[in-house]
Design a binder for these strands. Structure first.
Lengths: 343, 343
DNA sequence: TTGAAAGCGTTACCAG
DNA sequence: CTGGTAACGCTTTCAA
């Protein structure tokens, strides 16, 4: 059994209240008592029980984060920068994964809710907003991350996904691609947003997306690379064959490049490839990968600031949305203006 | 304010105890009362307050994990498989990062301890075991992960680091390397263990590690790639130049390869490179990277099982150690015999 | 400057 | 089968 304030109070012949006050830096404690208490606290290695404190104050100083997949560097980075931001103000972050499974996600959320978090951040793998509507009425402040429900009007921090699609597609066109395909993502806001950007940009340039040029994986994110490889194989078989591919994310793009090279074709010579996410190792790949940078750490930072503002403000504030602007990063996989050496 | 058992009891004209019993599936409740309670629970969307429950039961069903860096896939994977294992038994995992900073780590640990975790798992970035000795006397069960303190005799799950060094070095020798260098890791058990394996293997084959052939980064893990690149530059300038390099981890190896190629040399032709960790994208790199697989998910799984056994057993059990055997994975970066290998 | 009493939401224990 | 009472470790309020 860990030490309690009661132990300290008994040892010192003071009341529990006095100990409590010392620990919270109350003014009205004599210098001497304060010292004696602090001393004993050190000696016994006492740590206040936050659960008990939270029970009476109503604040747990615990913020929850649910992401689909921690192995995806995108979410790992968000978690890291978010945690950094919250820690500064004494809030602790607890991270859970849903493994892209809506049911598991629901379980995790309930588990977290049972702990009476001060706030909850979610990059949801759910395609329905029903449970979030409920949570908005009841429960702690809710902040959606990366994946939004347009109708819901919740707090949201994420990238401008349509801009991602526009940037990528415009770039492929600028590189001279005429037949641009899209390996699309899941049926959530990033997947749909990026697809829209792609479609609009093609239309703007009076280019067509031929039959089979938009292709969707059966499973989601977690196995992006495998599905990218698989979908790309099918694309290669089409005629006319695409000469540029915009992939929903970098792992898919990596899989796509793998299939292209396996088929004896060159990147970007025969097919240019661009992804999204700008992962740390993009520049070290077989073919260094062009990508759309989503400013991931900024998302985490913004989310932290938004969360803190919700937590500090006395009156329940209006829901807010922060959209981060994506940026194009050009590497070899789309750089057709430069001769590329193939290994 | 969230719903409480009191609300439900009042609404239904039963006692709080009855509600509590229904929620914990006590036998001695009439079918009718049970139904009425369960109904109202649904209606009000009631979730039990785990903090309050934990206060009286002494169990929080919360397990803590502290890792140096979530962006490192090694730790992300451990976190994921660990969480999966614990969830099965209803335990929740809370993940924190120390960013390889011992002071930050100490803070995080205290924060977590304040929440009265049922168990604490740490991949420490501390080089001193002092605070862990204290924690072993007082506080929840402690499980060290990946990085051990040999003298401490704590619960530990990790890879056989000396075997990592042996496997890697033996492989380089088998590939015909005669002048093998080592980009070593930090001053903790993995860093030292891998170095030892390297040294012993060289000795066994009567090979020498020439002056400057063992080189250590100034900073730790977080910027492995940069330091790998930097250290490799220096190695290239030595004469005689090494023809094989064993790197502490894969990011370092990636940096090293970068420098070698930049210098106009070939991998593995001029210098063979092997890392450790066998990251998911090793096979998609500029030069597919040979590596030592640490069976990362197995580490997480084992750690979960060990944790659960500590939690379930009534008597405080003896500390246990699980050592996972590493495995060699051959790819292009060391394949001087030009075999056809892909992973 | 100090502390007694009440209460936070829950469970343990035991009596009815 | 049901429920009163005490307790978990802490903070709040108010009186001394």
């Amino acid at each position: 059994m860990p030490t309690t304030m009661k132990d300290i109070a008994r040892d010192l012949g003071v009341s529990i209240v006095t100990v409590s006050k010392v620990l919270r830096n109350h003014e009205d404690i004599s210098e001497e008592t304060r010292k004696r208490v602090l001393n004993r606290v050190k000696e016994l290695n006492y740590t206040p029980n936050l659960a008990a404190r939270g029970l009476v104050t109503g604040k747990t100083y615990l913020v929850g984060l649910v992401v689909p997949d921690l192995l995806h560097p995108f979410f790992a980075e968000i978690a890291t920068s978010l945690s950094r931001g919250l820690l500064k103000k004494g809030y602790c972050l607890t991270i859970s994964t849903s493994e892209e499974d809506p049911e598991l996600e629901e379980n995790e959320i309930n588990r977290l809710l049972s702990r009476r978090l001060d706030a909850l951040l979610i990059a949801t793998s759910n395609t329905s907003s029903a449970s979030f509507e409920r949570m908005q009425k009841q429960g702690p402040p809710l902040i959606l991350i990366d994946r939004n429900f347009p109708g819901l009007g919740a707090n949201f921090v994420g990238v401008d996904d349509e801009a991602v699609g526009v940037l990528a597609t415009e770039h492929l066109i600028a590189m001279g691609c005429m037949r641009i395909a899209h390996l699309r993502g899941p049926d959530n806001s990033p997947g749909v947003g990026r697809l829209n950007g792609y479609v609009k940009t093609l239309a703007k340039h009076r280019l067509k997306s031929l039959a089979g040029y938009v292709s969707a994986p059966r499973t989601v994110d977690i196995q992006s690379r495998e599905s990218g490889a698989e979908l790309m194989k099918a694309l290669i078989g089409l005629s006319p064959r695409p000469d540029g591919v915009f992939c929903y994310n970098d792992p898919m793009a990596i899989g796509a490049i793998h299939s292209i090279l396996d088929a004896g074709l060159r990147v970007p010579g025969d097919i240019a490839v661009i992804g999204s996410g700008n992962l740390h190792y993009d520049s070290e790949l077989r073919v260094p990968l062009s990508s759309i940078d989503q400013q991931t750490d900024l998302i985490g930072e913004r989310a932290a600031r938004l969360t803190l503002s919700l937590l500090e403000s006395k009156t329940p504030p209006r829901n807010r949305t922060f959209i981060i602007e994506p940026k194009l990063v050009i590497r070899e996989s789309t750089d057709r203006k430069k001769r590329t050496s193939e290994a």
